[in-house]
Write a protein that binds this DNA or RNA. Structure first.
Lengths: 205, 205
DNA sequence: TGATAATTTCGACTGCAGTCGAGACTTAAA
DNA sequence: TTTAAGTCTCGACTGCAGTCGAAATTATCA
């Protein structure tokens, strides 16, 4: 690797590291780019050579975090557990990660759900990753007869996602305390499922 | 009314009017407070005498708009229509209003769902108004047997609200085009209802 | 190795949200 | 009508996100 590329690598990492530290310690809004630049040992303009906007720095870390979460999920997943259990596990794992840095999670959710015009594109990718995780799980559940066959999987993922956003929103606005998030999510997913699973009196399994 | 109060009234209205015009014409982000102040014929500082932040100006108009929407809804409501129809009417009316000023609606939704720490309180009121509108409708539907009796009304309102947020988000991020919002909403509400209404083979009405 | 081209770095600069205190206007009381 | 207290108005000022072009660093090739 050339000197140039090596330096770039290092600089970018230094900026990322500084960002993670400062955002976590002082919050996103309370961290100025100038401050961040100084902490990373570079000039302000340099930061903008690596990231186009302040939120983009957040996104970079978000993507990394989400990757971690997804990897973890894929590992610990139990593809034969009831669908409710699996879906709950997925979202609660995500929630627990977000919990560790509330500030961070709020901005991430906000940008994902109602992004600025400029960076609306970024998030389509993230969503893709989410759908790709959920699809096989739902497919299996459908095969097992836990979910109706006459509903598109995409609509089911959306349904769950919508309810997750709702609960997150309630949490961020203080309507649901942290310790009740799990039960609230379970309750509303259960509600959703009663409609998603086939109506039949022959509840075999 | 004293001269002073009269003046204040007028000034506030002038700011509001200028805001509505400029935000609608040039968008929220592209309108500076200085510009707004000039259009209203006052100094910059004066604007901040009436509103604490730029978003608060938006909120003032939002509240007004929502009031209009709610009044309209209460009038045109048909309390005996099927629950799906009623709920769809409510949200589509809201959506249509938002459509008229997309910019505006996006920021409103965003602030409502994932607000800044500072103005998290504001929105609890708005939500209350929403719940008070939905409650009697759902209660009636429950009495008619269209909704299960063993689910708290609050959870039902939340369920619908979550799905509405999801659809709005999909619209804002361009995943659902305007002309499909109505059918997407209907589809997902139908999904939700199949679980919300009692399971029974005696589908009388 | 030296000279030129390509890339990267930097901080002074622009534009805007929000603050603040000096001064203008309004009210109340004599 | 005068004056003192209370209230409102204003724009200069602060702080920060993001831009830009001049200077420094690295690559390329004779």
């Amino acid at each position: 690797m050339s000197i140039r590329e090596e330096k770039k690598q290092k600089t970018k990492q230094a900026i990322m590291d500084a960002a993670i530290t400062l955002f976590s310690t002082n919050g996103f809004e309370n961290t100025s780019i100038e401050e961040l630049a100084k902490a990373a040992g570079v000039g302000k303009g340099t930061v903008y050579g690596y990231f186009q906007t302040k939120t983009e720095i957040l996104h970079a870390f978000c993507e990394y975090e989400l990757d971690q979460i997804h990897k973890e999920l894929v590992k610990q997943a139990n593809p034969n557990a009831p669908i409710l259990e699996q879906v709950l596990t997925i979202y609660m794992t995500e929630f627990n990660h977000v919990t560790r840095n509330k500030e961070f999670g709020r901005i991430f959710m906000r940008q994902t759900v109602f992004p600025d015009e400029n960076d609306a594109q970024d998030h389509l990718e993230i969503d893709d990753k989410y759908f790709q995780l959920l699809f096989p799980i739902l497919k299996k559940a459908q095969d097992r007869g836990e979910l109706r066959k006459n509903i598109e999987l995409l609509h089911i993922t959306r349904h769950f996602y919508g309810l997750y956003i709702l609960i997150m929103s309630s949490w961020y606005t203080g309507r649901i305390p942290t310790e009740e998030v799990s039960s609230a999510l379970e309750l509303i997913f259960r509600q959703a499922l009663e409609g998603l699973q086939p109506h039949s009196d022959s509840k075999s399994k």
